[in-house]
Amino acid sequence: MEQTKSIMIVGVGGQGTLLTSRILGGITTQAGYDVKLSEVHGMAQRGGSVVTFVRYGKEVAEPIVEEGCADVLIAFERLEALRYAHFLKKDGVIIVNDQRIDPMTVVTGAAEYPEQIIENLSKEYQVVAVDAMAEAKKLGNAKVFNTIIIGVAAKRMNFTKEEWLQVIEKTVPPKTVEINKAAFEAGYAGA
């Protein structure tokens, strides 16, 4: 690979952005790339806006992704996709979980949740929107929606399905390996 790839994973604290960045870190490291991850900690489980960066290539120095530099934006929630869309390159791809989680500013009436986020983002970027929550419920565990999204993203990256499944097995909590693998397969097949 010539160019360093920059991926951003964004979402609401508690949605599994950190676990996802670890899976992406795992697969890229396993493939022999130089990889840098960085994470916004602290608020990760407290419902705040969370962003993590994954950069991989032959040699990577800077651990963060700058505005206008991301190749892929993986968003676990619509509003968070919109919040970070300006970090994408011109031809960047957004993979977004088509779900709405109201921030407290909206709940208390101090702000309004923007309408038609996916439609508006689609005017400027390549957007892949997936209702991963509905898919996850079909599998019997709503919490694995994030692994479905990883499956969707995986389809657009140069690693084999088996490599992905291996990393997922190593990264997720042991009790949830099977359901996470099923979720990945669902995302990968549907993508």
């Binding site: 609401v12 604290g13 608020m43 407290r46 419902g47 705040g48 806006s49 120095a61 800077e62 963060i64 700058e66 505005e67 206008g68 530099c69 509003l79 968070e80 919109l82 919040r83 869309a85 300006h86 921030p103 407290m104 500013t105 909206v106 101090a110 702000a111 309004e112 949740y113 923007p114």
Partner: peptide, 28 residues
Amino acid sequence: SANMLRKAILKQEIVTKEPAKVPARPPI
């Protein structure tokens, strides 16, 4: 950041988009 150095040292012009105006999501 790397871009800040590219601007200052290499005099590169780096145009970035304005972030969308969206409701804040403070931690809770």
